[in-house]
Design a protein around this nucleic acid. Sequence first.
DNA 1: GCCAACGTTGGC
DNA 2: GCCAACGTTGGC
Length: 152
Amino acid sequence: MNYWLFKTEPVECSIDDFANAPDQPISWEGVRNYQARNFLRDDVAVGDDVFIYHSSCKDIGIAGIARVVRPAYPDPSQFDSSSIYYDPKSTEACPRWIAVDLVFVCKLPELIPLDKLKKIANLVELPLVRKGNRLSVMPVTSAQWQTILALT
DNA sequence: GCCAACGTTGGC
DNA sequence: GCCAACGTTGGC
C-alpha cells in the first residue's frame, strides 16, 4: 500500500466533514491538474492512507487521516454544467478527470501546521514543503508518513 | 488582497 | 515544438 497527501480547502471539504460522516464514503472530486490526476488514476489504491491537508485557510496544515475505499472512476463534476468543476472538453466516452472515494480514519489530536513541517529535516523531499509547490495530490513515503505521525 | 511560482493555452 | 500571455494556486 501507499501513502498520500491530499490538499483541500476546508470551506469546501474538511476533516470535520469526514468526522461527521463516519463510515460514509466521500467522493474526492475537483482535481484539475494532470500530474495529480495521474496519481489518482494510476497509483492511488484501495486501502491506501491519506493525510488530509487544509490549505487557503486560517489554520494551514495536516488535519487528519482518511482511507481510500474506491479506486479511480470518472469525476462526475466534470459533466455537470452547473458545477465550478465543469469541463466542456471532457466527454463520458473519454473522461479527462478522475475521482476516488475516501472514508474517515481519524482526526489528529492537533493540526500539524505547515511551518512546523517545513522545519523537519526528514521532510525536505516532501513536495508540500518545497518552494512553489502546487501539487494537490502527492505521494508520501513510508518514512515521511512515520515522521509526520511522530509529530502528533 | 498581493504576488511568486507554476501550469495551460494557443499562435506561430 | 517554442514560448509569450494568461490563469490558478496558495502562503503570507
